[in-house]
């Protein structure tokens, strides 16, 4: 075998896209570990932010197991696998919807984030959200429908575009836009009320 056949010498080094890695994993399954190495941190952070570290430890791992099983369905022309992975993670989170909502409600009521207390009891670091707006946002999140919350948090916490959210959740872009608008209006309203109330005090 020559160096050229290996592509060592003559080809510029180009980034291998997620799509190319997933395609390679169809014949060499172990290549799929690279998808984990690239994206596990980000997926974990998203999950932890919504439902806490304990849930995230479990679901981040499961996200990649599910992705591995479904890899034949992945459109390998898509260079970036994050929308797909976030979509899977979001679907898995549905099982923990109550935990998630309870977290927002508790934060809204007390200003103490139960996620911080539950998962890092040994550190005894209470994540106190002093800001009135933070508590108000938590209250608003608790009141959103699950579908609105998914779109809103994918948009603000993962940086996915409308199109990528649509791809990840397998819904039309128009639906993403309308859910996001509704969620935004609700947030706006809650924040306005809060500001008004604290202004009256």
């Amino acid at each position: 075998m020559t160096a050229a056949a290996h592509g060592w010498m003559d080809e510029p080094v180009t980034a291998v896209s997620d799509g190319a890695v997933i395609e390679a994993s169809l014949t060499h399954a172990e290549r799929f570990a690279e998808v984990y190495d690239r994206h596990a941190e980000a997926i974990h952070r998203y999950l932890a932010r919504r439902a806490g570290t304990t849930v995230a430890d479990d679901l981040s791992s499961e996200t990649f197991l599910v992705a591995f099983r479904l890899r034949r369905r992945y459109d390998v022309t898509r260079a970036d696998a994050r929308p797909w992975l976030y979509g899977i993670a979001t679907n898995l989170l549905r099982r923990h919807r109550r935990t998630e909502s309870a977290g927002y409600r508790a934060l809204a009521r007390t200003g103490v984030d139960p996620l911080a207390g539950l998962d890092h009891a040994e550190e005894v670091v209470l994540r106190v959200t002093a800001e009135v707006e933070g508590r108000a946002v938590a209250a608003a999140l608790a009141r959103l429908t699950a579908k609105e919350r998914d779109v809103l948090l994918l948009f603000t916490w993962t940086g996915l575009s409308y199109e990528q959210i649509a791809e990840g959740l397998d819904i039309p872009v128009g639906t993403v836009r309308s859910r996001l608008n509704r969620a935004r209006e609700r947030l706006r309203r809650v924040l306005d009320e809060t500001v008004t109330k604290s202004g009256e005090r």
Binding site: A40, E41, H44, R45, A48, R49, T53, A56, D57, S60, D113, L115, D119, H120, R127, T129, E131, E133, G134, A136, V137, A138, L141, L152, F155, T156, W157, R184, L187, L191
Partner: peptide, 14 residues
């Protein structure tokens, strides 16, 4: 969106 972006920004890393 800014308020939301700051919420739980200190989530511990994996």
């Amino acid at each position: 969106f800014d308020v939301l972006t700051q919420l739980r920004q200190d989530t511990p890393a994996m």
